[in-house]
Every structure is written in structure tokens, then in C-alpha cells.
């Protein structure tokens, strides 16, 4: 089991290339999900401070 996992991670010495691409993908999608949420939060805050 552990051998299998380490084989997947290492990918015959190419693991670093493949997994860094995967991390970049996750990072870029993460940023794109975070941005609209941040925008909406800002509007909410503004409207709350207006009503108070």
C-alpha cells in the first residue's frame, strides 16, 4: 500500500513536474472561487454599515 502511494507520488522521478502542475491548477481555481465571494462579502458589509 505504502509502496503504491510512493510510486504514485514519485512517478519515476517525474512526480515533481506532474504534482506541481496539479497544485497550480488547484491554486488557480481556488483564487477564482475566492474572488467573487470576497466581492459579495464587501457589498454585505457596506449595506450593513449603512443600515446601522
Amino acid at each position: 500500500m505504502i509502496e503504491q502511494i510512493s510510486a504514485i507520488i514519485h512517478m519515476d522521478g517525474n512526480g515533481l513536474y506532474v504534482w506541481s502542475c496539479f497544485l497550480l491548477l488547484i491554486l488557480i481555481i481556488g483564487i477564482n472561487i475566492y474572488m467573487p465571494i470576497r466581492k459579495l462579502k464587501k457589498v454585505n458589509k457596506e449595506s450593513q454599515s449603512k443600515t446601522q
Binding site: M11, N14, G15, Y17, V18, C21, L24, L25
Partner: peptide, 11 residues
């Protein structure tokens, strides 16, 4: 190319 070609699935 071995396993490095798997980048294709993202690239």
C-alpha cells in the same frame, strides 16, 4: 515520455 505526459490532462 513516461509519467510526465500526464501533465496533458491539465495543460
Amino acid at each position: 515520455q513516461g509519467d510526465v505526459y500526464r501533465i496533458i490532462y491539465i495543460h
